[in-house]
Write a protein that binds this DNA or RNA. Structure first.
Lengths: 214, 214
DNA sequence: CGAATACTTGATCCGCATCAAGTGCCGTGG
DNA sequence: CCACGGCACTTGATGCGGATCAAGTATTCG
């Protein structure tokens, strides 16, 4: 089961002075696949998703960013163009730090560079763990684990069935069915469209037990 | 379709002096999942695979390393324990560079650090591209693309059907069937157990065309 | 209130895994 | 050098998980 690191990097006052502030509404793109990075984005508030299109035309949700996260650092550091769209999932306030090169970033903000490097290394682990899960775990378990991850990362955001599915490679209908089962199992509750996990520990215990089956 | 970067980092004579040399036979493990990194590995010759076990007990091949590649750098830089086994696929000669901390590495070998950082950032892209393919592409295309990748990265190594399958989330039988079809399509040839791609360009053209279907 | 979108539930289909029963291929030891 | 044992591979038959299709209902937003 993948987890995420709550450790964040707080930009200095001086850094923030050099930043450009933007407000973006839900549904907008922060950047588009194929574009060349010219700096780093930082989320003051809101939720951003890194989204790619699959061969069959549906979307997949590769990574989630929220308050206190940097965005666009992978492409910037790899010196590649963006490999996916950065889509605004809820109204966001963003800082943009223009930067000309990786070497320049390392020189002026070595601590930030080190932080981002470690972040990418951890993200690679997560991505490879998900790769592993995708070929080894049944969809029900993937959905349950993704729900836990998404709800832990951003408890106040109302994740849709579609987004949960896009995160773990499942269709909306399949997510619905899995959620119905999770309600029957007594580990989640629905309130309108929102999904409530009354006890995270209870949910985790259920997952651990579920993993042993099959 | 994912590609790999041929750009390599050559350790200096001075670096090599501080290294420990090892010879490992096929089937051995360079390191095991869960162990704590204490330095970096470098491949002088041979092929190494990063392998994880899926929930259903089968294996998945996460990354491939060969001559001139570093191994174990992700965990070292993330300051995490290894998240998968490093398995020797063909007899290898390895250099081990002991190193106490990420900061120390950055201080004494800044160019290597920068190189590894970029490498990890590119690997994250590849991994996320594969994640995307796994939920969007049919198994036939995944197998064909994986074959191209593996054969391009290590043309002399005889990739087994099992390994190709473990790389793209397919079973051995499915790989066999896909290969049979690729022979019928006239883009590969079998010689004993080995797979020959007579013309890489022809193969790529076939793939491009195949991607447009469906 | 009406329209658009998110969700739900059931029926059906199909891709690929699984199971089974072989046939090579290759290294090892006599 | 050949025989033998063990994997790697092949091919066909069968089954099932989850996608797809379809036809609703609920929710949210203008």
């Amino acid at each position: 089961m993948f987890e995420y690191d709550k450790h964040k990097f707080k930009p200095s006052e001086e850094m923030i002075k050099s930043a450009i502030s933007k407000k973006l509404l839900k549904g907008r793109l922060l950047y588009e696949k194929g574009m060349k990075p010219s700096g780093l984005y930082y989320i003051k508030s809101g939720v951003i998703g890194l989204i790619n299109y699959t061969a069959s035309g549906s979307e997949s949700l590769l990574r989630i960013f929220s308050e206190g996260d940097f965005v666009g650092h992978r492409s910037f550091i790899a010196e590649e163009n963006y490999h996916a769209n950065s889509s605004v999932l809820s109204d966001s306030e963003i800082l943009f730090f223009p930067c000309e090169s990786v070497e320049h970033l390392l020189k002026i903000y070595p601590a930030l560079f080190l932080f981002l490097t470690k972040q990418i290394a951890k993200d690679l682990r997560s991505s490879e763990d998900r790769l592993n899960d995708l070929s080894g775990k049944k969809v029900f378990l993937r959905i349950a684990e993704s729900l836990l991850y998404l709800k832990t990362k951003e408890p106040t955001y109302n994740w849709t069935r579609r987004e949960i599915g896009e995160f773990c490679g499942a269709k909306t209908e399949t997510v619905t069915r899995a959620l119905t089962q999770l309600v029957h199992e007594g580990v989640i509750r629905k309130e309108g469209r929102d999904i409530i996990i009354p006890s995270i520990n209870h949910f985790i215990a259920f997952l651990k037990n579920e993993e042993l089956k099959d």
